[in-house]
Design a protein around this nucleic acid. Structure first.
Lengths: 236, 236
DNA sequence: CAGGGTGTTTGCGATAGCGCAAAACGGGCC
DNA sequence: GGCCCGTTTTGCGCTATCGCAAACACCCTG
């Protein structure tokens, strides 16, 4: 297993406030692993034995209901942590993590957590902020699901994905990992059919360009307008 | 301002792992205050200058959209903390807190937080768990909003309220604070009209008894059945 | 005890979005 | 180069739920 260069991760929010010379000690406790596209990293309900930092690739965290329905909790971008169950006192992972692209992660055993935060309180503080931010994002999502129609929610979801994982092209912004209509439906609380109809519509208006598991925002500003427009103020 | 007896709060999750003799020191940094029914404790967007522990009463945390729509983030029960913005690194309160009943709270200035968690790391850990639990509850709520119909969501919401703040009566469980149909609508992502219709239906089936800002679950088990039933498996 | 105001109930029409089904598409694999 | 499979598109009918409006009920106040 190749050693991870501290300079590659020193700037990450997780390590803010950790002295560079200490960082090596933190990394020594971790191992790295590669997960090919479409492999599970951990399963919902499994014992939370590790926590993770994504170095390369993209990971989808999804939650499944007893009846088999799924929602996408979030997409993890490089530099973000995931599988923090133990930090919040959960013994089992509350969701399933799947690599949607070939991905490389750092893995710490949960047993290292108490020692880490004792030696490096900044890590605990940073994690607290991360969890807090996710809580606020969740609330935003609930707010949107409560007050907006599907089209607006899809617009917001795409804009967030573009911001988090967008690759700038000269003719727009491309979501930088494979994502299906079904995935977007599971992020916005609708069906793949409705998402497909919406994207088709947008495509014919030149707002997006899309294909199999691929979406390019051709007119991000136009989508912002859609996202923010009051539903009953629109033209016919 | 009356001194708060440590024995009244020693058992709260927030103080788990804090030695009783240290508790007094923690409480010395707080002041207590009383908020009459229907007064705001803090407003969304205001500077987060304090964090709170509810001693008596009930508090509603609600978030408002730019266009004036509201959702209820949660109801705070006695013993719970709220207004933790600063713990998660937010400079402003992300929601408005309003006493829905005459309420008594302990108030710490945010400036006390760094000192507190340094001297009593258990408090930081407990807060982390609290925030983590709320995050999971948010995800559950998103899951429900994505996959269940309104009637089931209302059922779940009432069951949660009953669990958190239910008063046992011989003929059922009463939600122990004033709550309107509108409030329930804002918890479940629907309209007060739909909630009213649902409750009327349940009332005629003997599942609940309700009135002005008052709800009694007469048949909690029956409501559990509703909450869990697969929508398309029900009888007429 | 009457008045006013907030919360609740209910009817009715409108519709966004679902659900099902089938066809078209695309692309990788052999 | 053809085949197979997962993804996407699209049509069509259906209905859960909204939105508006009006009538009510209840409580607190004066």
């Amino acid at each position: 297993m190749a050693k991870v260069d501290t300079s590659l991760v020193a700037h990450l929010p997780l390590f803010a406030g950790v002295k560079p010379e200490d960082l090596e000690e933190v990394l020594r406790e971790a191992r790295s692993a590669r997960y090919p596209k479409n492999t599970a990293i951990f399963e919902q309900g499994a014992d939370a034995q590790s926590f993770f930092l994504l170095l390369h690739g993209h990971v989808r965290a999804a939650k499944t209901t007893p009846t088999g329905e799924q929602i996408v909790v979030r997409y993890v971008a490089p530099g973000e942590t995931f599988g923090l169950a133990m930090a919040i006192g959960a013994a089992h992972y509350p969701a399933t993590a799947m690599a949607v692209d070939d991905s490389v992660v750092l893995i710490w055993p949960v047993s290292a957590w108490p020692r880490l935060i004792e030696r490096f309180p900044a890590i605990a503080a940073n994690t607290m902020q991360t969890v807090g931010k996710r809580l606020q994002e969740s609330h935003t999502r609930i707010l949107e699901m409560s007050t907006q129609q599907v089209e607006q929610r899809v617009a917001h979801a795409l804009l967030r994905l573009a911001k988090q994982s967008g690759k700038k092209l000269d003719h727009g912004i491309e979501i930088d990992f494979p994502i299906s209509r079904q995935d977007i439906a599971q992020m916005t609380g609708t069906t793949l059919h409705t998402v497909s109809r919406i994207l088709s519509g947008w495509e014919s208006q030149g707002l997006v360009e899309s294909g199999r598991q691929r979406i390019i925002l051709r007119d991000p500003h136009g989508i912002v307008v859609l996202a923010e427009r009051n539903p009953d103020s629109g033209a016919a």
